[in-house]
Design a protein around this nucleic acid. Structure first.
Lengths: 355, 355
DNA sequence: CTGAAAGCGCTAACAC
DNA sequence: GTGTTAGCGCTTTCAG
């Protein structure tokens, strides 16, 4: 029953008294064999505790039934939650997930992809639309289908499962402006190789511009997408007399770090400084004060990306994807202040804006 | 240069003017071929953009150069951080990581493992020591080396890379007792199939007992290891007049949920209820009030597990692992209260304990 | 619907 | 050191 040598399909076929080919078919296309044959094979499989050899199967069929996902990081819960959904959905369709993270290093993404291609996967899931030329080249060269996730922008690739960071940032900034703020600072991520970071500034800038406000160059900073990034932004902007009344952050992680830095330095949030986030991670509702942020379709991205990649692998045509929705979630970290005159913060009008 | 058909080692060998065998050796054992041969092969590889076929390699060599890790969940940052380290370290040694999560479902762990075995991996990393019989059986049957992580207990398997949850919980509870608490409640995880949860209660109970306190049955609850679990514990214990002065949680996630639930219900932490955590995730230092918790060697576990699994795969003998250390981190969420008489909370002594 | 047979691309003896 | 060759375990034609 438990043999020393791992038993093979040939063993199964022999025991079942059928040919190798029939045994193979019984396992992969059960409805193309006679019920009797199927039964004999299944019986033999059970008896031997037979388990397919994936490598042999992959070699012969040129399909590995695994897809790889290369993410920026696993440290942002927004990604780990999405990956979990991706994995679960893929699993349902009979695929495994190989996950790797490049920690925002373009070169590491290339290296990972190369290793993954070498290992053999049926498709890949990437985050964002801005990748090195080598990445696309590798995918093309090996005929690997891929879906791009999170970002949905004006790039022409039809398999982008995501939302518009530009629109999301625009909406967030609009809410900020409508809350009466004019002194607005932005804690963004690094814009190089990251269209999401670029879209966030662009969207923010556009919304401010529409309100007649211009985003001061010295009130924009590029910081890592983690607690420390947000802290640093606070240190940078809140030192002098001339400081913003709101800090728009690129991720909730940054925003939470910023809130904590404010607490440490005795800056009251939102009375002295409003802070907004992006992502709406579970913690966002729990920090003190709760975070005004952009809710994004984290789980949906995982699920839809999985479905799409399976369709692609199995050669079914898919219509181009339409962007998902995001919504601004208003909580306490954004203060609604009296409207100021457009030329500074001196005059106070009697109206107060609502979000 | 970029062929239609993915080029094979045979193509490389032909182009380099060497035999298939030499080409293979040039790639896998470069120092066993003449430098001139090596150079020719490398040149051909570059020219063709050759990439190994992992399936063929795996089939012929019986090694996949990938290891699988089955984790309870990716939603706890403690695990995602550790997985990241595991992955990075494995990568350095030339191995890939296949990650899956069973969400605390024993049956799902078995299913995942079966799929993973079928797919083919060189080894597996599991969390904890308490697994279904089938899990060990599968590993044994296919001769798969494995390391057990996080937990280090009295099970006899020599490759457990972890720490003693019992000792850690004991220390935490000791600190709680020394802070003057006697009315102590425990928010634990589900104990079935989870020796870590069991060790936590056992350690806590032992520490209380050593102080002459017994853990009330109705002040112990099994909850999921997430925010909601902590919230529920607060709801359950803080309804009546007869309530604890401290809630010891099994994870920081539970503790953070508990703190938030207290905030919602107007229970002051730590004045009305002290709360302690376990794990020391990054958020622990940031919540308000900052969390007293057990710091655990998250990254070390990832790194050491990776190293050990590689040694095991490559057949090197390893001495049995010695447990890692944990430390209690004292922050504001645990109130140091005046010593009460052993028979209630009526009398106040003038001493106050320190942690 | 089934059996026979030809590979999939690589590694690992084995002889030279 | 290097070339030759026999598989690794499976899928997939192709006849029948």
């Amino acid at each position: 029953m438990t043999l020393d040598r791992r038993s093979t399909l040939a063993d199964v076929a022999r025991l079942a008294g059928v040919s190798l080919g029939s045994a193979s078919r019984a396992l992969s296309v059960p409805n193309e064999v006679k019920p009797a044959t199927l039964a004999k094979v299944q019986q033999a499989v059970a008896q031997l505790g037979y388990v397919r050899n994936g490598a042999a199967q992959a070699l012969a069929s040129r399909r590995t039934r695994t897809v790889a996902a290369i993410y920026p990081t696993l440290s942002n819960p927004i990604f780990s939650v999405s990956i979990h959904k991706l994995q679960q959905t893929l699993w349902k369709y009979g695929y495994q997930l190989l996950v790797a993270s490049h920690e925002y290093e373009p070169q590491r993404e290339i290296d990972l992809l190369r290793a993954i291609v070498e290992r053999g996967v049926d498709a890949i899931v990437l985050v964002g639309t801005d990748h090195s030329h080598e990445v696309y080249e590798l995918a093309r060269q090996y005929g690997l289908p891929y879906v791009l996730t999170w970002s949905f922008d004006d790039s022409t690739y039809p398999h982008c499962v995501g939302f518009s960071y530009y629109d999301a940032a625009y909406e967030m900034a609009k809410v900020v402006v409508e809350s009466g703020h004019t002194r607005i600072a932005l804690c963004n991520g690094f814009e190089v190789s990251n269209e999401r970071a670029r879209a966030r500034v662009a969207g923010t800038r556009a919304a401010l511009k529409a309100a007649g406000i211009s985003l001061r160059r010295d009130w924009v900073t590029e910081q890592p997408f983690n607690f420390e990034g947000g802290r640093e932004a606070v240190r940078r902007f809140m030192g002098s007399e001339d400081c913003p009344t709101v800090l728009i952050c690129g991720t909730d992680l940054q925003a939470i770090g910023a809130i904590d830095e404010c607490r440490i330095r005795g800056i009251r949030v939102p009375e002295d400084l409003s802070i907004t986030g992006f992502d709406d991670i579970e913690h966002a509702a729990i920090v003190v004060p709760p975070l005004t942020t952009v809710h994004v379709p984290t789980e949906k991205i995982g699920i839809l990306a999985a479905q799409r990649i399976v369709e692609l692998i199995e050669g079914r045509e898919m219509p181009a994807f339409s962007p998902l929705e995001t919504t601004v979630v208003i909580r306490k970290s954004l203060l609604s202040i009296q409207k100021t005159s457009s030329l500074g913060r001196s005059k106070r009008a009697s109206l107060s804006a609502s979000g």
